[in-house]
Write a protein that binds this DNA or RNA. Structure first.
Length: 139
DNA sequence: GCCAACGTTGGC
DNA sequence: GCCAACGTTGGC
């Protein structure tokens, strides 16, 4: 199993919106960046991810699971853009903020730190375990 | 609200 | 195919 991070502006699509979709999940649509799209194309059923709130909050707030592999993005006719479906798994007891991530030597190499603009990105197994521990959630 | 970083577009 | 111009993202 591989691990990922999905970034969203809470004013556009928040963790609460994701939770409200329940087991049915939702398309992670609207991505118009090749690197982010390529990440989604690599995802497998059952892969796990973090749900990250950008802008004001800047924190990992929950975990999600990939429930549909890459398919055309329904919000565009442009065949270049694909997306996956994800469902909410569990909220973090303690949101893990960008500040905490930057201060933690074990997390200083995260794509989130190195390339802050990439909206869908890979997370290593070590990073996954560390953030789950900090956040008080089962990996 | 500003600005740096980055990706994309389009003219040559 | 290169590179300048432009638009967008996201942290501060």
């Amino acid at each position: 199993m591989r691990y990922w991070l999905f970034k969203s502006e809470p004013s556009t699509w928040s963790w609460d919106d994701q939770v409200a979709k329940g087991a049915e999940g939702e398309e992670w649509d609207g991505v118009r960046n090749y690197q982010a799209r390529n990440c989604m194309r690599e995802m497998a059923l059952g892969d796990r991810g973090f749900f990250y709130h950008s802008q004001k909050e800047k924190a990992v707030v929950g975990t999600v699971e990939v429930i549909a592999t890459s398919h055309p993005d329904s919000t565009t006719e442009d065949a270049r853009w694909d997306c996956v479906d994800i469902k909410a798994l569990a909220p973090l007891k303690t949101p893990v903020t960008l500040e905490m991530i930057k201060e933690d030597p074990a997390l200083s190499e995260m794509v989130l730190v190195k390339n802050s603009r990439l909206s869908v990105q890979p997370v290593s197994g070590e990073e996954w375990a560390r953030i789950c521990a900090l956040g008080g959630v089962e990996g």
